[in-house]
């Protein structure tokens, strides 16, 4: 026998003790029957044989307890051994009933089964109790099995969750690491973009400045072209003024040399023309000088 302190081991021990006790008592009843100390009916014998079969078979006390044969055995065990047989028949008649000792360790079955009471008032169990007990036992067994299954499933599911969570944590850590690296790259790229934007802005400013210088140069060129064009006109006007003045001077000198008063007086329109021509040339020259000053 395996000695253990666990409740299950204790139940097993109690079960074995109970079975041994029942075996001994059944054996005692048989012995007394064979010795003629007991008169047993066919029902008693069938019950004893069935009990023996059960005990010798799977030796499962629950079956014994639930089996109707136990009532028969119990009844036999409660009957004291007769001192002598006073009559033979279908009825028991004990002469000197030997004291039968109740099992030293009555089996206390699980799930609320109580061992049959050996008291005089217990008697045989009612026939309808056994099927009800079986049903209750089956229901409880199914419930216990269900709970056991659920417990195992729960434990398995929790284990799966934990595994998944660990895997997820590893993935998260990896992704976080990659994200931090990516963030660093983005920050670096942002810095590069900002630097490039600054360079682009600077270059655009330089381009605008160069374009402005070019346009200013074109402006100057345009002005100088206009100045040259205007200067040419002024020069022609001045030249015309000079030529007219020279001609007028020649005409005046000739008139004076010839002492031709009428010719001299006839030079008045020419003199007026020269004056006008030179006046216009002077105005053009002043305008030109003004343009030059404005352009410089």
């Amino acid at each position: 026998m395996v000695v253990s302190n666990s409740p299950l081991a204790e139940d097993e021990e109690a079960k074995n003790d109970f079975i041994d006790s029942v075996c001994a008592q059944v054996g005692g009843v048989y012995a007394r029957y064979r010795a003629g100390q007991l008169v047993l009916t066919s029902e008693h014998i069938s019950a004893l044989e069935e009990a023996q079969h059960l005990i010798g078979g799977n030796r499962y006390p629950g079956d014994l307890l639930r089996h109707s044969a136990l009532g028969e055995i119990d009844e036999l065990l409660k009957v004291p051994a007769p001192a002598e047989v006073t009559s033979v028949g279908t009825e028991l008649s004990w002469v000197a009933p030997p004291p039968l000792v109740a099992p030293a360790h009555p089996y206390q079955p699980a799930f609320g089964f109580a061992a049959p009471s050996p008291g005089p008032g217990a008697g045989r169990p009612r026939p309808f109790m056994a099927p009800a007990a079986i049903v209750v036992a089956v229901v409880l067994l199914v419930a216990a099995g269900g709970f056991g299954y659920l417990s195992v499933y729960n434990s398995s599911a929790a284990s799966k969750w934990k595994k998944l969570d660990r895997a997820q944590a590893v993935v998260t850590k990896e992704v976080t690491s990659q994200l931090e690296i990516a963030n660093g790259s983005i920050t670096e790229l942002n810095g590069d973009v900002a630097g490039l934007n600054s360079q682009v802005s600077t270059m655009q400013g330089q381009l605008s400045s160069v374009a402005n210088q070019k346009e200013k140069a074109i402006d100057q060129e345009t002005v100088f072209k206009e100045l040259l064009s205007a200067a040419g006109g002024v020069a022609e006007d001045l030249q015309l003024c000079i030529t007219s003045s020279d001609q007028l001077e020649t005409d005046v000198n000739n008139a004076l040399a010839n002492e031709d008063v009428s010719a001299l007086s006839g030079l008045a329109p020419e003199a007026a023309q020269v004056t006008q021509t030179c006046g216009e040339a002077e105005q053009a020259n002043e305008a030109l000088q003004s343009l030059i000053q404005g352009a410089s």
Partner: peptide, 14 residues
């Protein structure tokens, strides 16, 4: 598996 995770999004445009 309680690994503290501090994810800080980088600014898209610095």
């Amino acid at each position: 598996a309680a690994i503290p995770v501090a994810v800080t999004a980088a600014p898209v445009m610095a």
